[in-house]
């Protein structure tokens, strides 16, 4: 995943992670999030990446990084080995959506997931205008996108209910990275460009 120097979802994730925790970042890119969590929260972190250039960049950043394909699951990781397992702006690129969510909550006590909300009003307007949306959080053309799944905040929450996952935190951001303040879920779904969740398995 591309890494922006100042990512608002990182602020949220950093605020949810407790000092000293073990964090696994799936699709960690160059390790920016982990580096920040190590510096700010003194976590012990590991990243997972498939891309050679990102493996190299993460190593250059001094981050533990494991080269692996998320589509093959997380077989190299033991049950409940991490406090938080992060999947930042990557869920929409994974084909085995339920598989990866189940794996995240097998190896981790909690999962942090962020993804672009397809129902964001600008995306809907683009579609009404007859074109696939291209935005801050969906920055690709239809023909070169790594995204395999297009879904909305409400779709995701329905899947969580279906899978027995509890939503512990939810923050929704607009394209400028500002928190969307609305009471009705339908309004948040319409106004939010990026959704960030903290999930646990319902016990």
């Amino acid at each position: 995943m591309t890494t922006l120097p100042d990512r608002p979802d990182f602020d949220l994730i950093a605020s949810w992670v407790e000092p000293g925790q073990r964090v696994l970042d799936l699709g960690c890119g160059d390790g920016s999030l982990l580096k920040r969590l190590i510096n700010e929260r003194n976590v012990q972190g590991w990243g997972v990446e498939i891309d050679d250039a990102n493996i190299l960049a993460a190593l250059q950043n001094g981050i533990n990084v494991i080269q692996s394909n998320l589509e093959n699951g997380l077989a190299d990781f033991a049950d409940q080995a991490f406090d938080h397992v992060v999947l930042s702006r990557t869920l929409q690129t994974v084909r085995h959506t339920e598989g990866i969510l189940n794996e995240m909550l097998r190896v981790g006590r909690a999962a942090v997931v962020s993804f672009p909300n397809f129902a964001y009003w600008r995306n809907l307007r683009a579609l009404l205008d007859g074109r696939m949306p291209v935005s801050e959080d969906l920055p690709y053309q239809w023909y070169d996108t790594p995204n395999a799944r297009f879904f909305t905040l409400l779709d995701f929450e329905a899947l969580c209910r279906q899978m027995g996952l509890s939503i512990r935190e939810r923050q929704v951001l607009d394209e400028a990275g500002q928190r969307v303040e609305a009471t009705r879920d339908e309004d948040i779904n319409f106004l939010g460009s990026l959704a960030v969740y903290r999930l646990t398995r319902t016990r």
């Binding site: 073990r22 012990q44 590991w46 050679d52 493996i55 993460a58 190593l59 981050i63 533990n64 990084v65 494991i66 080269q67 692996s68 077989a75 190299d76 990781f77 033991a78 080995a81």
Partner: peptide, 21 residues
């Protein structure tokens, strides 16, 4: 190599793994 990596991870060790083409 992944067997080694998995066993190190299970111990919470600082480990990086590259699979080079």
């Amino acid at each position: 190599s992944r067997e080694i990596v998995a066993a190190l991870l299970a111990n919470g060790r600082n480990v990086s793994y590259a699979e080079i083409d």
